[in-house]
């Protein structure tokens, strides 16, 4: 009986339910308002179901529960009846101020920002890719500059260099050493940007005095047949002599970018080349290769990188 009564009650609004119960109990609205400490206007609004007069659904539910308890109704049933009629989601804004942007424009702005960032990332990537290509090109142009500078060498010095080469070939370096030191020290200075002082000249000439005999012992060792012979040995005024203490890859090109030496050479091998300076030299195992340029030992140790390779140009004065 009671259940069916409640079911029929739940069909009617919460306010009506409460009013009926209050009248049945013979209570006045002012009496209940005083007992519950609720503003009488709010209770009247509830009874007439004008919930908009109350600030928030939270308060409406609170009043409904209290009212239901006061007139001995089930608070949950009353609240349920209210929720069925209207339960707007509680509104809460971060700012009570005026909203200048509509959410749509905000969303658009977010998309614009996202696509802008994507574009920037793409451009940066592109520049990086191009920049990576450009670096080796820059290195090549340096070599080109060296090549362009080299042919300006004076013919007189060139003649002297030729003489010294001949002297070196004839295994008598002691005779002409002082002039040779003077001539060969100069090209090294131009080849190496970090020019060394003139006081180092004597030590270099000392080393030339000491080293040639040993080199000539090496020279007697027969060359291995497996080493690839240079495709065409260009004839020229300048001479390079290489002797290997260990296996090394060697690549030497002359002024016309012609390959004088290209391939892997074995321990103990020696090579003599003639061509036109400047020479572009690449040594795969630089510490193991002794280089003589126009009869004068060339110190390649400054060009040796961490991986033992060395790349340098040999330029006559």
């Amino acid at each position: 009986m009671k259940n069916s009564e409640q079911a029929s009650e739940s069909q009617v609004g919460a306010g009506e339910m409460l009013r009926e119960a209050r009248e049945k109990a013979g209570l006045g609205i002012a009496e209940i308002a005083a007992r519950l400490h609720i503003n009488q206007a709010y209770l009247e609004a509830i009874e007439t179901q004008q919930y908009a007069k109350i600030a928030s659904p939270t308060f409406v539910k609170g009043y409904l529960r209290a009212y239901a308890k006061a007139v001995e109704l089930d608070p949950d049933a009353v609240v349920k009846a209210y929720v069925r009629v209207s339960d707007p989601l509680p509104e809460w804004r971060a700012h009570a101020g005026i909203q200048l942007e509509t959410p749509d424009t905000r969303r658009q702005m977010i998309w614009i920002a996202v696509s802008g960032v994507a574009l920037i990332v793409l451009l940066v990537g592109l520049f990086w890719w191009l920049g990576r290509d450009a670096t080796p090109r820059g290195a090549v142009s340096e070599n080109e500059i060296l090549e362009r500078v080299a042919p300006v060498a004076q013919p007189a010095v060139l003649q002297a260099a030729l003489e010294t080469t001949n002297v070196a070939m004839s295994d008598q370096p002691e005779v002409d050493l002082p002039p040779k030191a003077a001539t060969t020290a100069a090209p090294q200075q131009t080849a190496e940007p970090e020019a060394e002082g003139p006081e180092t000249f004597p030590t270099e000439s000392d080393s030339t005095q000491a080293s040639p005999p040993s080199q000539h012992e090496n020279h007697a060792v027969p060359q291995e047949p497996s080493t690839p012979a240079p495709a065409s040995v260009a004839n020229g005024p300048d001479a390079i002599k290489l002797s290997l203490k260990a296996d090394s890859w060697i690549d030497i090109r002359d002024a016309n970018d012609q390959k004088l030496l290209h391939g892997l050479y074995r321990t103990g091998a020696t090579r003599e080349l003639k061509g036109t300076a400047p020479f572009q030299v690449f040594l795969g195992n630089a510490p193991a290769v002794q280089v003589e340029f126009n009869g004068k030992p060339f110190d390649a140790s400054k060009f040796v990188k961490d991986n033992k390779t060395a790349r340098f140009a040999l330029i006559r004065p």
């Binding site: 600030a55 928030s56 659904p57 939270t58 308060f59 809460w92 804004r93 971060a94 700012h95 009570a96």
Partner: peptide
């Protein structure tokens, strides 16, 4: 207060 659904954004 926000979880309880009280309109604390108003000047009340």
């Amino acid at each position: 207060a926000i979880g309880a659904g009280i309109p604390i954004d108003a000047a009340v």
